[in-house]
Structure formats: C-alpha cells, structure tokens
Write a protein that binds this DNA or RNA. Structure first.
Lengths: 199, 199
DNA sequence: TACCTCATGTAAAGCGTTACATGATTCG
DNA sequence: CGAATCATGTAACGCTTTACATGAGGTA
C-alpha cells in the first residue's frame, strides 16, 4: 500500500504569504512579517515563528522557491519567489467562495482576502464583492429586525438605574452594529465603482 | 518556607462570567454560555469547556458560590451567585484603564467591557468612554495622515493593471478604516448623552 | 552601555477548539 | 427516528505566543 504523505492543511497565513510573494518576488520571511504586521496588521498578523515554518512547508510543496544570499557572520538571506503551482494555489484560494459567519474575525478575514485580490480578473473581484454585499446586507436587516443581537432579558435582581444603563448601552451598541453593517455594504458598492474606473 | 499557591492569572472570560453572574444571580454555566454567545457573540464567545473550568476556579477563589439543584438522571444543576469578593474583583477589572492596541481584537475587547458596565457609577462609565473617544480619535487622525495603515511600496514586478487594482482596493480600505474610527468616536459621544439622560 | 533592527530558526508554554462521556426530553 | 436542547464535565489536539539561540551593525 503506497504511503501517501499526510495531506497538509493550509491556513490563511499560507495563502497570505503566497499572495504577498506573488506581488513582490525576491522577498524574505522577515520582510513578509513587516508587510503583514504594518500594512494588514489591523485585520491579520503573524509571528516569525509561524512564518518560517509556513515558508518551509510551502517550499517543500513546490509553491515557492528561494535564492540564498550569503552574508558574513549572519544567517543566509532567503529570497522567495512564487512558482506556477503556487500561483495556481493562491488563485484557487482567492476565488473560492467565502464562508460567512457572524463573528468579527470572520468579517476581518473577508477584508483581508479582498486586500490580496488585486491581480485577479475584474469579474472575479466583483463576484467576491457581491457576496459581501449580500452577507452584510442580510446581517444589517436581521440586526435591525431584532432577530439576533443583544437581549437584556437575562438581567434581573439589580437596581433600576443599573438596568436602565445596561439597556441604554446595549441598545446603542445594537444601533451601531446595524450602522456598521450598512456602512460596509455602501463601502463595497463604492469600491466596485472605483474598480470599474480602473479597468 | 511557606508554600504559596501559584497566583491564578485571570482572563477576560473570568471577568465576563463574574459580571454576568452579578447581573443575573442563580445562573448556570450552560445559561452563561447562551448569553455570551447569543448576546455578545459578535465581540466575544466561549466554549463550555472553557466556562466550566473558569467557574471552578472562580469558586475556589471565593468569587462565586453555587446552589446545587438535584435533577433525576441528570447532572446536578449548579446555580451561581457572586460574593462580595467577586463583586470587588469585577469592579476592579471594569475600572482598570483600558490598554488600547491597534488591532481589531483589542477594539472588540473595549466594546465588550463597555457592555458590562451598566452597574458602575456614571462617572466611571464616562471616564471609560472618554478614553475610547481619545484612542479612536487619535487613530482616525493617524490613519488620515498616513502615519500608519496600508502601504503599497512593496508591490513590484506585476502588471500595471494589477497594481492599479491593488492601489484602488487598499486606498478604499484605508478610507474605510478612517471612517470607521470616526464613526466610533461619534457613537461614543452619543452614548454619553444617552447615559446622562438615564441618570 | 543598552537597546533596536536585521535575519533565521527551534522549543516550550499557553490558550482555544473539538471530541468524548452520560443521559433525559422535545421537535421535526 | 434522528437531531437538537438541556446540563455537567474531562481529555486530546492544534494553533498562537513567548522564550531561547546566534550575531552584526547602528542608534540613544
């Protein structure tokens, strides 16, 4: 029985690295961390101790290759570039329909992925944006309808003033979430227009 | 040499549980999960396998106590209530100045904590809100000034159209982040007014 | 002199998710 | 009849963060 290597499970980090290497060939792991944490750090961040093993794996899988630059008294500098297999892998990830969940991390993943889509076809980007318009629109409608979100029923046995304050804060928070979801929809719509202007 | 127990490190979950038990005495771990995941789930969520050990620890530390309700063929129902020591602990956590960082998780922690502040004094809540107004205001100003945020310098060696698309998306994203930070400031300001109306 | 940046990497500790164990009742 | 909800808890697994190891050069 042929021994097949245990299938590697790729994470967002793997694809983010692949996309960044594609946008900027001959880049080091250290530089990649800089870009991830400075430019996309609000949505996504990674440590070198995650990046190095990931690059190792991606190299072993033939998605990237590196040139080694010897430097005196310092560890060799490894400058990575993407391979055709790597290009295919990122593309596959980018066009794979996004799975929406009602959490902040999930929404941030959506925006992270969008940031990396510059080299796709316009149609592909628009399909992705449309999926976001639908998801955030649905969310805004549900929140506004009170189907989900903040409920105060559980508060009991505390004084009336505290109850009213909880109420004021939670209601306000709910309004804000609705507002935010709506703002995202209109943001995505205006991005679509901008991209049409570019093509 | 007296053997001192290794100091327990408390996490946000511990305080969230404490605050929710305070707002709703005689509550079970299972019910707490429901409240956390349904009402605050967008900002914060927890599994039962985290909640049960946390409640155990909080009980051992004297912050909460429970009544055991026997049920036929089912595990005993444990209904928790907060102790004076527990009340003091949550209060200390709530009034401890919030440490702002430039990540989404950190911002969500800020809003999570705010949600639990209903039983504080108005002044304490306002101090907390003011710290948020300052932090998000500074963030909005910095982003708008281009001091931090998205930089495209790293993109190279790719075709002109892709570059322009990256540019369009990233600039748009930056605008959105500025907008969002400003929206938070005005949201916090209007919350302050609402709370004054309640007192 | 002490610290930060560059540059690669491994090891251990900590935290979060999934799976397991048990079992009654209700809903589709 | 299977799945979900209620209800408590432990164990294993996996991912994330911090610490360690090495070392040059520049800055405060």
């Amino acid at each position: 029985m042929a021994q097949r290597a245990k299938a590697t499970r790729y994470h967002d980090l793997d694809y983010v690295l692949l996309a960044l290497i594609q946008a900027h060939p001959k880049i080091s792991g250290y530089q990649l961390r800089g870009i991830i944490n400075e430019s996309t750090g609000y949505f996504f961040h990674a440590h070198l101790s995650q990046i190095y093993p990931s690059l190792k794996q991606l190299t072993a899988d033939g998605f990237i290759v590196f040139d080694e630059v010897a430097r005196e008294g310092k560890p060799d500098l490894k400058l990575y570039s993407i391979t055709p297999a790597g290009t295919e892998a990122v593309h596959g990830w980018l066009v794979k329909p996004f799975e929406f969940k009602a959490t902040r991390e999930n929404e941030d993943s959506y925006f992270m992925k969008l940031i990396l889509m510059g080299s796709l076809e316009l149609e592909e980007i628009e399909t992705y944006i449309d999926s976001g318009i639908e998801a955030f629109g649905t969310r805004a409608r549900r929140l506004a309808a009170g189907d989900l979100g903040l409920e105060l029923d559980f508060i009991s046995d505390i004084d009336q003033l505290a109850y009213q304050r909880f109420h004021a804060i939670w209601n306000h928070e709910l309004d804000f979430m609705v507002h935010e979801a709506k703002a995202r929809v209109s943001w995505l719509k205006s991005l679509k227009k901008s991209l049409r202007g570019v093509s």
